[in-house]
Design a binder for these strands. Structure first.
Lengths: 234, 234
DNA sequence: GGTCCGATTTGATCTAGGTTAAACGCCGGG
DNA sequence: CCCGGCGTTTAACCTAGATCAAATCGGACC
């Protein structure tokens, strides 16, 4: 069966079944088939080639996005021509929920870092589901709360930690004792995400390598001295 | 009916009627009397003297707080002994909602900046109300979304604006063409909120005064050249 | 009014990190 | 295999803002 045939017959698009994909997200887990169908009925796939914009600062918001595959960066442009990456989103992650609940336009832009497939869930459909499904409402609330939490941690890092400490925080972000970490994007993007220039990020990497704490090869960082890193960076 | 009689009969405390106060908040507007009663039944007044802690980083969260009168600062302590003020909350504002929806402890501390009266709304009661009242859920969602929005704007300011620009942003934050702004707290607290040292904040004030853009007397800032400020700071 | 203490200002330095510029490396296309 | 270009590194320098130290202000309390 070709992709087109599948799509025509039962809501499968582009090689993935929307319902199945949605069901795997925390936000939609616990939903029964009927609920998932309602959401899926207002969900559209979208594709963005590497470098392509998904939305710009100031655009109106018509729903939220979920990354199926590929990678997206969120950020803002400085008046003076630079840009600051706020977040890097990968498969299974969603963005733009918060703006949906305000009447404001996007504060940030979203741009594909590689060829990316997205799902776009319509705003009105989310509102309707909240209306009839308190569990979904609670999921949505804890999603926003989690994001808020992360953002506050970022503010903490930006305000009172050095760049090396922020990088170490990034390295050790995920669970227990990682032995090797793959940078989630090119070094300049990660640098911007961590609020530093690529040059300075490069120096931090060099310094930490020199101290025997890590070893950098391309985008992979091998952790040589976990304790040392912890001692260094909180 | 005297206040005391009211308190004995139906949940009035300490000179304010809880229901009436709650009803004025955006979060609870549109609630009918029965709903408000349910909330009020799990709402307790609390008092904090100037300087007193309301909660600390790491404390578990049992509900959220609303400022009735007085003023509260939210912030975190630096490992190296400093502190960074994240937000200054005044009457009618609430805080701590987000943490309620996570199982995490508080990331920030809350401390009274002056003698303050608070209302504490129990967590379980909020969850129950969400369960049965989609409108309330939506209010809660837009409350969190608004906070997220403000935080992202802060991140934008911290990342790509100078301290003078941040201060101007603070000055012009509220609506249209203010002619005189009262600093929401002592200068050191505002400075920390804006991510600078008191010394540097003082210099910014001096510079802007010198340029004839503002005039500072104590905690009040008179705006002399609105256009000039706008041109300077975005 | 006088005293004291904390809050603010001022001044002199110091420094993390930004800027500029140049060299280098790696990778995809011809 | 060579070329061109971008992403990264290195090096020299510069600047916003921090830090340290001291003077000053202001207002609560006697």
């Amino acid at each position: 069966m070709t992709k087109a045939e599948g799509a025509a017959r039962k809501g499968t698009h582009s090689g993935i079944r929307i319902q199945e994909f949605l069901a795997r997200l925390p936000m939609f887990s616990e939903m029964d088939a009927a609920e998932l169908d309602r959401i899926a009925a207002h969900t559209l796939p979208a594709y963005a080639a590497k470098g392509e914009a998904i939305f710009h600062q100031g655009d109106p918001c018509t729903g939220f996005h979920i990354v199926v595959y590929g990678q997206v960066k969120l950020g803002f442009n400085s008046p003076h021509g630079g840009e600051k990456v706020v977040e890097i989103m990968g498969p299974g992650q969603s963005f733009g929920e918060a703006v949906m609940f305000l009447e404001k336009p996007y504060l940030v832009f979203a741009q594909a870092l590689s060829d990316t497939m997205l799902l776009h869930v319509a705003r009105h459909c989310v509102f309707e589901e909240i209306e009839r499904n308190p569990t979904f409402a609670r999921r949505m609330l804890s999603g926003l709360a989690r994001r808020l939490h992360m953002l506050v941690k970022d503010v903490e890092a930006y305000s009172l930690r050095s760049s090396a400490e922020r990088f170490i925080g990034y390295l050790l972000r995920e669970g227990e004792a990682p032995t090797e970490v793959e940078l989630s994007a090119g070094k300049s993007v990660v640098a911007s995400r961590l609020n530093m220039t690529p040059e300075h990020f490069s120096r931090v990497l060099a310094e930490l390598s020199g101290a025997g704490l890590i070893e950098v090869k391309g985008k992979t960082v091998r952790i040589l001295d976990l304790e040392g890193l912890r001692r260094f960076g909180g």
